[in-house]
């Protein structure tokens, strides 16, 4: 479900939350932010998609961190258990907790943003703020092409199966299948891109100069104030963290 906020408002909110959480570096805050993002996602009707994407990223990362810092943290002093070279230390566990929750919060907040924002709105909003049209094009075009690719790959696979292609179980056989499927895919995409480039140039895409936009976005003074405030707050948080933690030469 697309959000009713101006896309820059949700972008600012997500970006600033992620940066402030990183700057604060407090795991209770990180957990709170992650929970809030998850609840908002459920409320916006994208809970399942956001959580699925987050789990795919965070579970391997979390386990990796737990294994890495939970068992091996040479800097740790408070040893809780030890098996040979592996030492479970309180410092290591707290490091893993801090790092894991911080990343978890940022991932959930940013996924909440990307799964609720309307990509065309976002591109239009960024273009209106002076983002080069090329960036908007690459962003929007990639987001349209990606879902279409599943269908295209399925069509290629079907066409090749109809020619009698049987993918075996061995590694070599599967590698060969990758090549057979990749060649028509790459060739088709590159050829399409060639024609599309001609079409875009004919439709004045490369022309320098001012542009206008058909799509109009709703913005409000309240949202503008909120964005300015969020950016200021974030800047303050970052500055504070940089000043307090600036490494002093020994």
């Amino acid at each position: 479900m697309p959000s009713t906020l101006h896309p820059l408002t949700s972008l600012t909110a997500a970006g600033c939350t992620a940066v402030i959480t990183t700057a604060a570096g407090l795991w209770p805050l990180s957990v709170a932010v992650a929970l809030a993002a998850a609840l908002l996602a459920v409320g916006a009707g994208v809970g399942r998609r956001v959580l699925a994407a987050a789990v795919a990223v965070l579970v391997p990362l979390g386990l990796s961190l737990l294994m890495l810092h939970g068992l091996f943290f040479p800097e740790g002093r408070t040893v809780l258990a030890a098996w040979g070279p592996a030492r479970v230390t309180a410092e290591g566990l707290s490091f893993a907790l801090e790092a894991g929750t911080r990343t978890g919060a940022c991932v959930l907040v940013l996924l909440l943003f990307s799964f609720t924002v309307s990509a065309p709105d976002l591109v239009a909003a960024l273009a209106a703020r002076g983002l080069p049209p090329q960036v908007g094009f690459v962003l929007a075009s990639a987001l349209t092409l990606l879902p279409a690719m599943t269908g295209r790959l399925a069509a290629i696979r079907a066409a090749q199966e109809a020619r009698g292609l049987v993918v075996g179980r061995g590694l070599l056989s599967r590698l060969a299948a990758v090549r057979l499927q990749a060649v028509p895919l790459v060739l088709g995409l590159v050829e399409d891109a060639g024609v599309r480039a001609q079409a875009l140039e004919a439709r004045s895409f490369g022309t320098p100069g001012p542009r206008t936009s058909y799509r109009q976005l709703q913005d409000s003074p309240g949202q503008r104030v909120f964005r300015a405030a969020a950016v200021l707050l974030t800047a303050a948080a970052v500055a504070l963290r940089l000043i307090t933690a600036w490494p002093v030469a020994p």
């Binding site: 990509a119 049209p133 079409a199 439709r203 004045s204």
Partner: peptide
Amino acid sequence: SSVRSTVAEELAFGLENRG
């Protein structure tokens, strides 16, 4: 263009680029 989500905007793409 592959970057416009409605027929109306697709039609207007060239006009947008010309300002």
